[in-house]
Design a protein around this nucleic acid. Structure first.
Length: 342
DNA sequence: CGACTTACTTGGGACAGCCC
DNA sequence: GGGCTGTCCCAAGTAAGTCG
């Protein structure tokens, strides 16, 4: 296989200097050259199949034009739209993304952060942070531009783009309340995640405002945002003996787990027990009973975080909002009904 | 022979300055 | 002064060179 052509090869073929070729191929620098020279060089470059070597350019610019995207769980359907939002901003600017999956394992997350740094990424969009993680805070403090998405590390100085979790929980709680539910249980998200913690706090506060009784056994604490934990927690709630009529889940996957257990036990949703989710991940509207949930602006959250990261990568001293909160929306489907009478 | 130093290597960008 | 050239620089691995 023939070696890929470099600037030097184009220079040799066109009879101009390497630097001239470099300028001719760079839209923002070619203005100092005559149109004829630019046209000729571009034609020859295209004909020779020239593609710039970003690694080499990075030697001089100290930029690799790559961005690391860290996600906790690649099987979670919530992330593709977020990544699309991110790429809608980064790709036109010439950035390429390196997507890594932490599997929500702390050691793996730390390893992958180092891997991304070794690759010389210009910045990191982190959708997998824990509520408290000194290592990540240190990496950001050492100068790696970073933005967290969906989640945040409190008081870390790392800009976060999050959803209005408190508002979402309040809306869906009120929605259940208005249907007549007074025994509303909660499957809480992991305590080490800002989303898990924040939504639980919002649930407790919201329930109190509505005058609802929330005994300890009305809350099941999950360890992960997945269907297996949704099943385990639902079983624990049902076996706890508290006469619940609705289960407000901290995310959609927990709710899908709840559906499974209810179905297995012959409990009908929504006529016997109502269930709600959070996130509105893709395909929910295709699985019966269609889940009533809170929609987060998945694409936009990615877009906004990428905008902020670009600012930081372009100017490390740029002033950016420490926290951007995007509004959420109630999505009414079929998984909520009035509680059974009697 | 091992330890250490030095020079070279890569592709391309920044910048000073040359020349018609 | 427009159009272009020449030089230096970048990171860091490797190979060659030097020394005790």
């Amino acid at each position: 296989m023939r070696k890929a052509p470099t600037l030097k090869d184009i220079a040799l073929a066109t009879g101009v200097h390497v630097s001239t070729v470099s300028r001719a191929l760079n839209p923002s620098l070619r203005t100092v050259l005559s149109d004829d020279v630019v046209k000729h060089i571009c034609e020859v470059a295209a004909q020779m199949g020239y593609r710039p070597n970003r690694l080499a350019a990075g030697l001089r610019t100290r930029r690799t034009m790559t961005v690391g995207l860290m996600i906790p769980d690649i099987t979670n359907a919530i992330f593709p739209p977020i990544l699309r939002g991110v790429e809608s901003v980064l790709e036109p600017l010439g950035y390429a993304s390196i997507i890594v999956n932490t599997d929500s394992i702390l050691a793996r997350e730390h390893l992958l952060v180092d891997v991304l740094r070794e690759r010389g990424v210009d910045g990191i969009i982190h959708a997998a942070v824990l509520r408290n993680d000194p290592k990540i805070v240190k990496v950001a403090a050492e100068g790696t531009p970073m933005v967290t998405v969906n989640r945040k590390i409190e008081n870390s100085g790392i800009p976060a783009v999050v959803n209005d979790d408190a508002q979402g929980i309040r809306m869906i709680l009120k929605y259940l309340f208005d249907f007549g539910h007074r025994k509303i249980a909660h499957i809480a998200g992991p305590e080490d995640l800002s989303t898990g913690q924040g939504r639980k706090q919002a649930f407790v506060a919201g329930a109190r405002e509505l005058g609802l009784d929330v005994p300890a056994r009305a809350i099941a604490q999950s360890q992960r945002f997945d269907e297996a934990e949704g099943r385990r927690c639902t079983a624990a709630l049902l076996d706890g003996g508290w006469p619940l009529t609705a289960i407000l889940c901290a995310n959609d996957r927990l709710a899908l787990g709840a559906f499974e257990v209810l179905r297995a036990r012959g409990i009908d949703c929504p006529t016997q027990v109502s269930v709600t989710g959070f996130n509105d991940m893709p395909f929910l509207d295709l699985i019966p009973p269609r889940l009533t949930t809170v929609r987060i602006q998945q694409f936009e959250v990615g877009q906004v975080s990428a905008d902020i990261l670009v600012k930081l990568m372009t100017d490390p001293a740029a002033a950016v909002a420490s926290e951007t909160t995007l509004p959420v929306k109630l999505v009414v489907r079929d998984s909520v009904a009035p509680p059974p009478s009697g």
